[in-house]
Nucleic acid binder design. Structure first.
Lengths: 150, 150
DNA sequence: TTGACAATAAGAATTTATCCTATATAGTTC
DNA sequence: GAACTATATAGGATAAATTCTTATTGTCAA
């Protein structure tokens, strides 16, 4: 991952903008810098607050819109599920999930499709693991068809 | 999983309520029935609309509160991430995630900790898979300590 | 430098979830 | 089976997160 001190960060960002026909604005540079140098998984609000240090006049909407743009062009990745309304799973048996990134469908996958997941012991020393799941993201059968016909 | 036609569904629900000192109300029965017989992963609003068919006077708040209660006692499982503010991951390399169900922290886990995930070919015939990830849920180091001292 | 188009700021609107409180109800006791 | 008590509910108010609208500003290319 690049860091804030990397002198290439601006050059890299310029190249990305050029590729996707985005204008290089101070706001976009600031958001790019803030999010790309984060070592956690920041929320829109966290990025907004970080950017505000140097750009007190930036609006929340700009940060939000910019993050959405960056996610669309693949500069950052929206963390699984977050941002969508809460949903409940009545199936308490061990199983896995496929998330459709277009329509939001969540499809159950059965454990015999996959190898058993072994949790490394160094991890269980630090964390209490209550559930483990394989999570696949992509386009479901229906959305994939629509995708192809674009 | 139980189905709506299962004659034991009401008996099962009564037993659960007794165990957790919850009163058996028509609203709770309706919500239980709706969510437990769902084969998708319904949102609060979806459950609300389903329950409304037979209980036109039920409030959204009751459905929401009841679902939260059911999640607390382990009758249903909140789907990973959903319901929390959107978050972004600047790390585009293959890696895995641990979600703390108490503080919401998302912690990166590195792929060499786990066996490679093979995607079954019957799955790739139906879906386009763009990302695969192992997702662990539980208590992070800090929350686990607090948990123990309760 | 200027014109065309894209991006921004600010506030309003939307969506999702929760809180508040008076009333109603379940389950127990008599 | 009636009365009691704690819990649950309805519905309006509130809060939090995100997106939309519109007037203004800024970028980049000619």
């Amino acid at each position: 991952m690049q860091t804030k001190n990397d002198p290439d960060i601006y050059t890299t960002f310029q190249a990305i903008c050029k590729k996707f026909n985005l204008k290089v604005t101070p706001q976009r540079i600031a958001v790019y810098d803030a999010v790309i140098s984060a070592h956690d998984h920041p929320s829109t609000d966290a990025v907004f607050r970080k950017v505000q240090d140097r750009h007190p006049n930036i609006s929340f909407d700009t940060v939000n819109r910019t993050l959405n743009t960056f996610a669309e062009i693949g500069v950052i990745d929206p963390v699984e599920g977050h941002g969508a309304p809460k949903r409940y799973d009545p199936n308490l048996a061990v199983h896995h999930h496929f998330h459709c990134i277009q329509c939001g469908a969540i499809i159950d996958l059965y454990p015999d499709m996959f190898k058993r997941i072994e949790i490394p012991s160094e991890l269980e020393k630090k964390f209490t693991v209550t559930a483990k799941r394989i999570l696949l993201k992509g386009y479901c059968a229906r959305c994939r068809t629509e995708q192809k016909s674009d």
